[in-house]
């Protein structure tokens, strides 16, 4: 079945099986492997992408449900000249990652959170990231990073 969507500003049109998950389409067919798969139960959030600007778990959508959608993955956040998105920068500056596996999903969930609530409290950040699991950091520096990004002036 044919599906058309825009991913990181680039329009795509592909023939897919209806059972293909959006995350498999993004990774396997578009080659955007920054989006990770960490579980089989829609729990870990490492597959989080923006769907029309809002965070979703791309392992829990069919690619065909993306028909006509605007998708942003971790690869689409930095500026074309390589400058990182303020949330990416804040994760680096605040040591918001260790192994980095959860990071693309965490960053996308944080971008969505800050779109909805530009000045969250620490508690609101924790609640806003409840759909994302991290096995390394203990979350503290992730929360610090998101708060720092919220304070940074150039958050568009």
């Amino acid at each position: 079945m044919k599906v058309r969507m825009t991913v990181n500003g680039v329009p795509y049109e592909d023939e897919v099986e209806p059972r293909l998950l959006l995350v498999q389409y993004i990774r396997g067919m578009l080659g955007l492997t920054g989006t990770n798969i960490g579980c089989d139960t829609s729990s870990c959030g490492s597959c989080t992408v923006l769907f029309g600007g809002e965070s979703v778990k791309s392992c829990t959508l069919l690619a065909v449900q993306g028909e006509g959608a605007e998708i942003t993955t971790i690869e689409g956040l930095a500026l074309p000249d390589g400058r990182l998105h303020p949330v990416q920068r804040a994760f680096r500056e605040n040591h918001g990652l260790q192994c980095g596996f959860c990071t693309p999903g965490m960053v996308m969930a944080a971008v969505s959170l800050l779109n909805e609530n530009p000045h969250p409290s620490a508690r609101e950040v924790r609640e806003g990231l409840e759909g994302n699991l991290c096995r390394c950091t203990g979350y503290h520096n992730i929360v610090e990073a998101v708060l720092a990004a919220a304070r940074s002036e150039d958050l568009s």
């Binding site: 959030g45 989080t48 809002e54 965070s55 979703v56 778990k57 829990t60 959508l61 969505s112 759909g131």
Partner: peptide
Amino acid sequence: VGDPQVRHR
């Protein structure tokens, strides 16, 4: 319900 990603869908 669930988490923000779940509530968005």
